[in-house]
Write a protein that binds this DNA or RNA. Structure first.
Lengths: 217, 217, 217, 217
DNA sequence: AATGAATGAGGCTTCATTCAT
DNA sequence: GATGAATGAAGCCTCATTCAT
C-alpha cells in the first residue's frame, strides 16, 4: 500500500483535487495533534476538513497513509529548521549550541506531531522506522562531528564517538519530548544553556576564543 | 467501579482464586510484552492463561485494570532492583556507576513491560502519570545527590541541579529504551562505561583515589 | 423445570437448609422490589442474603423459580388480607366499600411485589397467567355478587355482569397500580370514597339503611 | 450523545438515507410488536429491514433510541385518531361514547405498540414518563369536561373531578390493555356500550333528548 | 471529484448457571 | 449444606473501509 505521495508515481491532481487533499492533510495534522493517532477517527478528519466521509479515500488508503502525508510535510520542515542558519566553520561549542537551540525551536513548533510520532512508533513498524531514522540522522551527524573533533585534538580522544553521540542525542531527544511534548515545565534559556553545557563537558571540548587559543580556565 | 487491585479494598481470594488471578497476570505480562498493549486482546490473555474468557472479568475490569496489576509487580521489582546493593558512603563516581548499571540490568529484565509502559503512556493518562512518576523518582534522587555533591565541593557548583538531573536521567532512560526496548545494538560494557563517564564529566566530578586525594590529572 | 416449592414433591430440608432458603426468598423479595426483576442479578440476591453465589442453586433453579417462591408467600398474604374481616350479610355498598379498602391496604403492603409482577407479566407467560389469575378471581367474585344483586333487585338489571365486573376491577386494579405502584399522589380517604362511589353508581345500587328501607334520595 | 430523533438537531438525510431509516423504524415496529422489546435483538431488526447490522447504528444509538422513533410515529397517530371526528357541542353522553369508541379503535390499531410501551414502562424511566403522559392527557381532558358539566348542572356536583377522571381513565385504559393487548375475549359492541354506561352513571349524567329535556326515566 | 450511505469483521462484556471441593 | 471459582453463550457496538451515485 504505497502512499499517494510516493514520488515514483506522482498522481495527477486537478487544482481542486490538490486543494481538497491539502485540506485533508491539514485537518489530519490538527486532529492527530489534538486527539492522538489512536483516538482520531477518519470521521474527525473529514469533519475538520469539511469534506464528506468518502472523500478521504479518494486521496488516501488509510489512516496510516494520511499520517505519512502529514509527516512528509512536518518532518521535512523539522529538518529544514535544523539545517537553517547553521554556522559554517564555527567552533564546536557554538555549533553544538546552535544545533541544540534549533532542535528546541523546531520541536516546539511541531510538538503535537512529534508526540503523535512517538505514539505511532510504539505499535507500527513503519513509523518506528521513521522515528528511528530521524534520530539516527542526528546521531550520525553528531558522531561525525565528534570524530572530527577528536581527530583535530579539540576534545577528549578517549571515548567511543558512536555511543557517546547516541547518549547525548537520547538526552536531547527525550528531555525535549517530556518537556515540550508532555508538558514538563522548565525555563527555555536555562534548558538550552545546560543542554549545551553537558555536551561540552561530556566531550571535554576546549573552548577556543576568536584567536584560536584555548580559553579553558 | 474500583479496580480489583485497589489496595484499599483487597479482595479475599481463596488459594485457588489467587492462583488463577496470578496465572492471568503472568499471562498478561507475557502477552503484552509480545504483542503490545494495543494489539493484545482479552482472549489472547485468557487463552495464554488457559482460562475461559469470562474468567478474566472475575478478577479484572478491563485490559487497563490487568495492566495495572502487571505493573504493580513489575514496577516494584524494577525499583527493588535499583535499590539493591547500593553502596553506602561510596564516592560519587562509584555511586553513579552502580546506579547506571543497576538500571541497565533492571531494564533488561523488564524490557518488554517497559516498552508496554512507553506505549500505553502515549494515550492513557493514568499510565502516563505512572511512567512519569518512575522517572521523577530518579530525577529527584539524582538531583538530591548532585546538590549534596555541589555543597560538599565534590563537583562543579555552576549548574542547576534539577535541569541537569533531568537531562541525565532522560539520557539514561531513553538510551536504554531504544537499546533494550527497541533493539538498538550496543556493547553492554561499553554502554555502562560511557554512560557513567558522561555523568561524571557533565557534573565535573573529581575522582578521588582510595587515599582521598584528587586523582584528576 | 418445576419449582422447589412444588407441593407435589416437597423437598426435605433440614432446619438449617430451610432457614437459608427462607433468607434467600426474603432477600429476593427485597431486591426485586428495589431493582425490579430484570435489573436484579442472582448476585444481588445472594449478597443481600449473605450467602455464597452457588448456594442459590441449591434451592432454586433460576431467577424465575425464586420469584415464584416470593410470590407464593406474597400472593397468599395478599389474598388473605382481602378475605380478612369480610362482613357477612352486609348490604352491597358496605361490601364493596370493604373490598375496595382492603384491596388498597393489601396493595400498599405489597406494592413492590405487585410492581414486579406487573413487569414480569409483560414478558413471561407463566407470570402473565399468575397476574391474570389474580385479576380473574376478583372479576369472578364481583361478577357473582353483581348477578346476585341483580337477581335480588338490588341494582340495575340492565347490564352485563361480566363486562361490568371486568371494567370495575380494571379500574381498581390499575388505578391502584399507578397510585401505589408508580407513585401518583392522591389522598387515601378520598380515593376509597370515590372508588366505592363509582361502583355503587355504576351498578345502580340502592343503598339500604339498617332497617332495610331504600334510602336513595 | 443525543438521540438521532432529537427535534432540535434534525439530521439532514438524503432520500436514500431517509428511506433506510424508515425501513428500520418500520421493521423495529414489527419486531417489537412480535417479540416484545426485551426479546428483540438489534439483529432481528436489521434482518427484518434487510440491512446490515452496522447500518442500525448509522441512524440510532440504541434499541431505546429506535423505540423512541417508533413511538414518535405511533403515539402521534394514536392521538390523532382520538381527536379525529370529535363532535362539537354534542351532549356529554355522546361525547363520552365517541371518546371511548375512538380509544378502542385506536388501541386496536396499535395494540402491539401499546403492549410494548406497557412493557418498557416497567423498567425504563423515560418510557414510563411517556406512558404516563399519554394517560395524563386523557385524565386532564376528562377532568376538564367533568368540571364543566358539574358547573353547568349536567351531572352530579358531589364528587372530585380529578380522582373520578383518573379512575374512569384507569378503567378504560387497563380494560383495553387486557382485552386488546393481552387477548381477553369480549364483544366489541358490548364493551363500548357498557364502558360508556359506567361513565354516564358514575358521573350521574342527565341524558338530554333532542329537545333539551331530561329524559332520564 | 465528491458524496454519504452501507457494510461487517472483530472485540468487549455480562451474568445465569455449572462445577469441584 | 455451603462455597466461590469457572464457564461460555449471547448480544452489543465501533469504525475503517467499500459502494453506488
Amino acid at each position: 500500500m504505497t502512499s499517494r505521495t510516493d514520488p515514483i508515481a506522482p498522481p495527477k491532481l486537478t487544482r481542486k483535487g490538490a486543494a481538497t487533499r491539502a485540506r485533508l492533510v491539514a485537518a489530519a495534522s490538527r486532529v492527530f495533534a489534538e486527539l492522538g493517532f489512536l483516538q482520531a477517527r477518519i470521521t474527525d478528519i473529514t469533519k475538520a476538513a469539511d469534506a464528506a466521509n468518502g472523500t478521504f479515500y479518494v486521496y488516501f488508503d488509510s489512516k496510516e497513509d494520511i499520517l505519512r502525508a502529514v509527516f512528509d510535510d512536518i518532518i521535512a520542515d523539522f529538518l529544514d529548521m535544523l539545517r537553517e542558519g547553521r554556522p559554517v566553520d564555527a567552533d564546536p561549542v557554538a555549533l553544538i549550541d546552535h544545533d541544540n537551540k534549533r532542535y528546541l525551536v523546531a520541536y516546539r513548533k511541531h510538538a503535537g506531531a512529534m508526540r503523535v510520532l512517538e505514539q505511532v512508533a510504539t505499535f507500527n513498524d513503519e513509523f518506528a522506522a521513521l522515528r528511528r531514522s530521524v534520530r539516527d540522522r542526528f546521531v550520525a551527524r553528531a558522531e561525525r562531528s565528534i570524530a572530527q573533533w577528536q581527530h583535530a585534538g579539540l576534545c577528549d580522544p578517549d571515548f567511543a564517538p558512536h555511543i557517546t553521540a547516541a547518549l547525548l542525542v537520547a538526552m536531547v531527544d527525550n528531555f525535549t519530548y517530556t518537556w515540550l511534548g508532555l508538558g514538563d515545565s522548565h525555563d527555555a534559556d536555562q534548558v538550552a544553556k545546560e543542554m549545551t553545557s553537558v555536551w561540552v563537558k561530556a566531550l571535554g571540548l576546549n573552548r577556543r576564543g576568536p584567536d584560536g587559543r584555548d580559553d579553558t580556565p
